[in-house]
Simulated assay, not measured.
Amino acid sequence: MADRVPQSSGLSALRGRISFIDLMQSLGLMVIILLGSLIMTAMSPVFATVRNIENVLQSATIIAVVAIGQTFVILVAGIDLSVASVLVLSSVLAVGLVQFQGLSPEIAIILALCAGLGIGLVNGLAVTKLRIPPLIATLATMTIGRGMAYIYSGGTNIAPVPRIFIDLQASRFLGVPGVIVLTLVLAALAQIVLSRTQFGRSVYATGGNPLAARLAGIKTERVVIAAFMISGLMSAIAGLLITARFEAGAATAAQGLELAVIAAVVIGGVSLFGGEGNIGSMLLGVLLLGLVQNAVNLLNVPPNWDSVVSGLVIAAAAALDVYRRSYLEAGMRKKVIAKAAKSTPKTS
Results as ranks from 00 to 15, higher is better:
Leu233Pro: 03
Leu233Arg: 08
Leu233Thr: 05
Met234Lys: 05
Met234His: 04
Met234Ile: 09
Met234Pro: 02
Ser235Thr: 10
Ser235Cys: 14
Ser235Arg: 10
Ala236Trp: 11
Ala236Lys: 12
Ile237Trp: 12
Gly239Asn: 04
Gly239Cys: 12
Leu240Asp: 01
Leu241Ala: 05
Leu241Thr: 02
Ile242Cys: 06
Ile242Tyr: 13
Thr243Asp: 06
Ala244Arg: 13
Ala244Gln: 10
Ala244Glu: 05
Arg245Val: 08
Arg245Gln: 15
Phe246Ala: 14
Phe246Ile: 15
Glu247Trp: 03
Ala248His: 09
Ala248Asp: 04
Gly249Trp: 12
Gly249Ser: 12
Gly249Glu: 05
Ala254Asn: 07
Ala254Arg: 08
Ala254Phe: 11
Gly256Met: 10
Leu259Gln: 07
Leu259Tyr: 08
Ile262Met: 14
Ile262Tyr: 04
Ile262Thr: 08
Ile262Arg: 04
Ala263Phe: 02
Ala263Pro: 03
Ala263Lys: 06
Ala263Trp: 03
Ala264Phe: 11
Ala264Ile: 08
Ala264Gly: 09
Val266Phe: 02
Ile267Gly: 04
Ile267Ala: 08
Val270Ser: 01
Ser271Tyr: 07
Leu272Ile: 14
Phe273Cys: 00
Gly274Ala: 10
Gly274Lys: 10
Gly275Lys: 13
Glu276Ser: 14
Glu276Tyr: 14
Gly277Cys: 13
Asn278Met: 07
Gly280Val: 15
Gly280Pro: 02
Ser281Phe: 04
Leu283Val: 05
Leu284Phe: 14
Gly285Met: 00
Val286His: 03
Leu287Cys: 09
Leu287Arg: 02
Leu289Glu: 01
Gly290Glu: 01
Leu291Pro: 00
Val292Cys: 03
Gln293Phe: 12
Asn294Ala: 13
Asn294Phe: 06
Ala295Pro: 06
Val296Met: 08
Val296Asn: 05
Val296Ser: 07
Leu298Ser: 06
Leu298Asn: 04
Leu298Lys: 05
Leu299His: 01
Asn300Val: 10
Asn300Cys: 02
Val301Gln: 01
Val301Trp: 03
Asn304Lys: 09
Asn304Gly: 14
Asp306Leu: 10
Val308Arg: 00
Val308Phe: 14
Val309Glu: 00
Ser310Asn: 11
Gly311Ile: 09
Leu312Tyr: 02
Leu312Ile: 13
Val313Ser: 01
Val313Thr: 11
Ala315Trp: 03
Ala315Val: 15
Ala316Asn: 02
Ala316His: 01
Ala316Arg: 01
Ala319Pro: 00
Ala319Met: 14
Ala319Leu: 15
Ala319Val: 12
Leu320Trp: 04
Leu320Glu: 00
Asp321Gly: 08
